[in-house]
């Protein structure tokens, strides 16, 4: 158990294992994305009330789900780096922030474009949408805060605290559609009771959610690898890697 913990703290080990994972995860993710999106776009029938505009669901819901999951990753990594001073957790936290921002932006943008033909408006200041906008600002805040400090150790601490405080927003996002009456529909996929979504739409959606999770993992690993190299630029293993890549 402890040896695994130590290995995670070792940059060269993390760099090589993430490279090995990405070699199959990245192509698998792209295939799953292409299959899931084409399934949803081309082979499902339109929604009886919303028509074809509902097809945006196959990117909107996965992006929103992963934007929230990404926040857990970022806040958890922040907590670990704060409590155990684990450098790799700090790398993970910093790497997660811009990706989370990208996914939150996708969720908000596709939501706006979906809202126009469905609700007749691009934007409403309702609870779900506003709390997602706050999520975007939290992600961007972590990115900006990290850049604002010259002392990167202090930057890591400040960002970890910000991401932990921002956790308050997460249950608000989840419950916003139940607590406040709004234009946004409540969740169609439920774990405790029967889902209110037809199986022919549910399976491609499930595949897209899985593919987006994998996509987040790929982006996180790619960002962490780039960050690792820069932080370890004075070490022997990075120098060796650079000379080897320079020769090719």
């Amino acid at each position: 158990m402890w040896s695994i913990f130590h290995k995670f703290g070792s940059p060269p080990w993390l760099y090589s294992i993430s490279g090995a994972i990405l070699r199959w995860l990245l192509p698998a993710t792209l295939i799953a994305l292409i299959v899931g999106v084409s399934w949803g776009l081309l082979f499902t029938s339109p929604d009886f009330r919303q028509g074809n505009s509902y097809r945006i669901i196959y990117i909107h819901v996965p992006a929103a789900v992963v934007a929230l999951a990404g926040y857990y990753v970022m806040a958890l990594a922040g907590a670990v780096s704060l409590i155990w001073r684990m450098k790799m957790a700090d790398v993970a936290m910093k790497a997660a922030a811009p990706i989370g921002a990208a996914f939150t932006f996708i969720a908000l943008f596709t939501g706006a474009v979906w809202g126009k033909p469905t609700w007749g408006t691009w934007w409403v200041w309702d609870a779900r949408i506003t709390s997602m906008l706050i999520l975007l600002f939290l992600y961007l805040g972590v990115v900006a805060l990290y850049e604002a400090f010259d002392n990167k150790e202090a930057a890591g601490k400040a960002c970890a605290v910000l991401s932990l405080v921002g956790m308050v927003n997460i249950p608000i996002i989840y419950k916003s559609v139940d607590w406040w009456y709004s234009l946004h529909q409540p969740a169609s996929i439920k774990f405790t009771e029967k889902s209110t979504i037809d199986p022919s739409m549910f399976y491609p959606l499930l595949l897209c959610i899985g593919a987006f999770y994998a996509l987040f993992t790929c982006c996180l690993l790619l960002n962490m690898r780039a960050e690792l190299l820069q932080r370890e630029s004075r070490t022997q293993w990075v120098k060796k890697l650079a000379t080897e890549s320079g020769r090719n």
Partner: peptide, 14 residues
Amino acid sequence: DGHGFYVWTAYLVT
């Protein structure tokens, strides 16, 4: 059926 602009914009930006 008239929703193409919205659907394709969403997918393209994503």
